[in-house]
Amino acid sequence: MAGLQDEVDVLRRIPLFANIEPARLKLLAFTSDRMAFAAGQELFHEGDAGDAAYVIIDGAVDVLKDTDDGEQLLVTLKKNAFVGDIAILCDVPRTATVKAKDRIETLKIQKEHFLRLMTEFPEMAVEVTRVLAQRLQKTTDDLTACREELEHAKGN
C-alpha cells in the first residue's frame, strides 16, 4: 500500500518542492488526494476552469492541444512530472488537455493549498519562477526554430 512517505519522496524529487522542509511536504501530501486515472481518461480538458494541479506518481500522461486539425500531441510527461500548474498560477482556463497514457497514479493538489504554500515559502515562489522561465526559454527557442524553418520554406 502506497503510504504518505512514498508520496513525500515523490514530491521531494520534483524541483518545485525540492527546497521545502520535509514536514511541510508531508503535510502537503496528507492534505492532497491520491487519485488514480484509467488509461485514456482525461485529468482535465483544455478550456476548463483550473482547480488543481497534479503530480504524476506513476505512469505517463500526454499533453494535448486542440487545433483545427484535431488534437495534437505536445509532449509526453512521465513519473515525477507536475502538470496543471499554469491554470492555477495564472487563474486562466486550462491551456492544454492532459490525458492518461496508461493507468496512472497522481497526487491532486488543490489550488488554494498550492497558492498558500507559495506565499509561505518564498523559495518555492522562486523555484516556480525558475521553472516557468525555463519553459519560456524553451518555447522561445522553439519559436525561433519554427520561424527559421518558415523563412527557409518561403525562401524556397
Binding site: 514536514a23 508531508k26 503535510l27 496528507f30 492534505t31 492532497s32 488554494e112 493549498h113 498558500r116
Partner: peptide, 17 residues
C-alpha cells in the same frame, strides 16, 4: 499534531482534516 502544529487556524489545509 506533528503535521498541523504551527498552522494558523484558518489555514486551508484544515479543510482537508
Amino acid at each position: 499534531i506533528e503535521l498541523f502544529s504551527g498552522l494558523p487556524e484558518d489555514h486551508p489545509f484544515f479543510e482537508q482534516l
